[in-house]
């Protein structure tokens, strides 16, 4: 993706802050945000599991909101602030949501996990004491094929408790 495609239109220069660091890149206008994050910035913890915004494996935080980065063009993030899975643990210490996923066996293959965690990152920052039903509604846009969700909900509840 380092070479700009030939017929994607005129290249655009964007400036974004990702995980606290500011980047400026010139990119083709049709480049998806998820490809910018993965291929240009090399942050491969954000995954691509579908092409219809169903699976949520590509979820990141953009300007405080969880978004599906496969459904946005990179230029749409210009001037914005992005947080990815690589940016939520401080000094190598796991974030309480990551810790809760680990403790509650809320992941198996782990492919969907960063998307769930980023979605919950926003949700739990705004909902300090959610009910299980609220958690289920919040993660409905993230698919997991391994766990059957029971432990993911459990982990979210445990994280909410810890984050208080």
């Amino acid at each position: 993706m380092s070479q700009a495609p030939g017929n994607g239109g005129e290249a655009i220069t964007i400036t974004v802050k990702v995980n606290g660091k500011t980047y400026t890149h010139t990119i083709p206008p049709r480049m998806l945000l998820v490809h910018y994050i993965r291929e240009v910035l090399g942050l491969k913890g954000t995954h691509i599991g579908c092409d219809t915004s169903n699976c949520g494996a590509c979820t990141v935080i953009l300007n405080g909101k969880a978004v599906k980065s496969c459904t946005l063009f990179a230029f749409m993030a210009d001037g914005g602030e992005i947080l990815t899975i690589e940016g939520i643990s401080e000094d190598g210490k796991l974030h309480p949501i990551q810790e809760a996923f680990w403790e509650n066996h809320a992941l198996q293959c782990g492919f969907c996990t960063p998307g769930f965690i980023m979605n919950l990152y926003e949700f739990l920052s705004k909902n300090k004491k959610p009910s299980e039903e609220e958690v289920r509604r919040a993660i409905e846009g993230n698919l997991c094929r391994c766990t059957g969700y029971v432990n993911i909900v459990r982990a979210a509840m445990a994280a909410a408790e810890k984050m208080g």
Partner: peptide, 17 residues
């Protein structure tokens, strides 16, 4: 708890893509 999990949780796994 699993010995596999830490890198998966940190986004440091290595999937095919």
């Amino acid at each position: 708890r699993r010995i596999e999990d830490e890198r998966l949780l940190k986004g440091r796994a290595r999937f095919i893509d």
